[in-house]
């Protein structure tokens, strides 16, 4: 139908459209222009190059490169390290993303009440995001250290015997989750902003109607912040699959202990920059891309309909 027509006989297709359609089309293109330029300039070449590499055994320099067809992709299926790295990535993401969103929403809700010292609290929660990760990583190495560690020291005040965190294969991933959740300042700002969109009169109306706290939250607040929850979820999942920096700053990218922190991003990096298997790493990147795309599409499908946009 129209897509085929548009290609076969663009002029006729164009004329067959309503003036409104044509007007919107033109404006749509105008507003998309920077995006098109940006995509063509900064994304097209690297993306196409890496797709091409993924079908070759390219090394760091490209010397002695041959085509290997789909070998890299089929190799991934047999690579147990790749599967375990995906598992680790998933583990961290499934914990870090929801916990991050829930904590950010709780903080935002509390900070949205007219409490004294609001600005002060907000600044405290935002401070971790200001610290360059080079510095915060080093701080957290001290925090998690079982011997000199601040965290276990604080836990001991409450009579808790803390685990070995980054030294313990069972606790290394939870430690990474804690580190990630600590930097939720940006998310908190977004949620706070979203909360400002909840109309006061609706809240008050609900209160007069005798709705309890949970009802008010679920039926009034959540719909209005749902676009931002959606945003947090999607960007969280996209970033979660590419989890890298915390592992680099906290374990030096070794995957220690016992491979417990070897996430896909680090495994990819190791393949490309340590073992120079650039072709293989590119295949990993595109498999990751497909996984992320599928998950994102699923999330849109699951929750997209429930998102309430005031403008529609």
């Amino acid at each position: 139908m129209s897509a085929a027509q548009a290609f076969l006989n663009p002029r006729r297709w164009w004329r067959s459209k309503t003036p409104m359609y044509r007007r919107n089309y033109k404006w749509g293109l105008v507003f998309a222009t920077p995006a098109f330029i940006g995509l063509a300039w900064f994304f097209a070449y690297p993306a196409i190059a890496s797709i091409v590499y993924s079908f070759s055994n390219r090394t760091m320099t490209g010397a002695k490169t041959q085509w290997v067809g789909g070998t890299n992709y089929s190799g991934l299926f047999k690579d147990s390290e790749w599967w375990s790295s995906l598992g680790n990535t998933f583990y961290i993401m499934v914990l870090a993303v929801p916990i991050g969103i829930v904590v950010a929403v709780i903080l935002a809700l509390l900070l949205n009440l007219k409490v004294r010292g609001q600005s002060f609290y907000r600044t405290i929660f935002f401070l971790p995001s200001i610290l360059p990760v080079v510095a915060s990583g080093v701080v957290w190495l001290y925090v998690f250290n079982p011997q000199y560690g601040v965290l276990n020291n604080v836990l001991s005040w409450f009579g808790i015997n803390g685990p070995g965190w980054l030294q313990d294969p069972n606790w290394a991933k939870p430690a990474l989750v804690i580190f990630s959740v600590w930097g939720l300042g940006n998310l908190m700002v977004i949620m706070l902003a979203g909360l400002q969109e909840v109309p006061q009169d609706l809240q008050e109306q609900a209160m007069v109607d005798g709705a309890n706290w949970w009802h008010r939250f679920w039926h009034v607040t959540v719909p209005f912040i749902s676009p931002h929850l959606m945003f947090a979820l999607i960007t969280g999942v996209i970033a979660g699959f590419q989890y890298f920096t915390p592992v680099y700053v906290l374990t030096n990218g070794s995957g220690d202990p016992a491979g417990a922190t070897m996430v896909s991003g680090v495994y990819l990096y190791q393949n490309a920059f340590q073992n120079f298997k650039v072709g293989y790493a590119s295949a990993m990147a595109w498999v990751l891309f497909i996984i992320i795309a599928v998950c994102t599409a699923l999330l849109f499908k699951l929750f997209g309909k429930r998102v309430y946009y005031g403008g529609e």
Binding site: L29, Y45, S50, I238, A239, V278, A281, S282, M284, F289
Partner: peptide, 26 residues
């Protein structure tokens, strides 16, 4: 306009390519 959704998808997709493979070509 018709390209609204596809363009949004493509823009989202740019976030999904791991940086370490596009680093050298870039």
């Amino acid at each position: 306009w018709p390209l609204r959704k596809p363009l949004f998808v493509v823009i989202l997709a740019t976030m999904m390519i791991p940086y370490y493979v596009t680093m050298v070509p870039l």
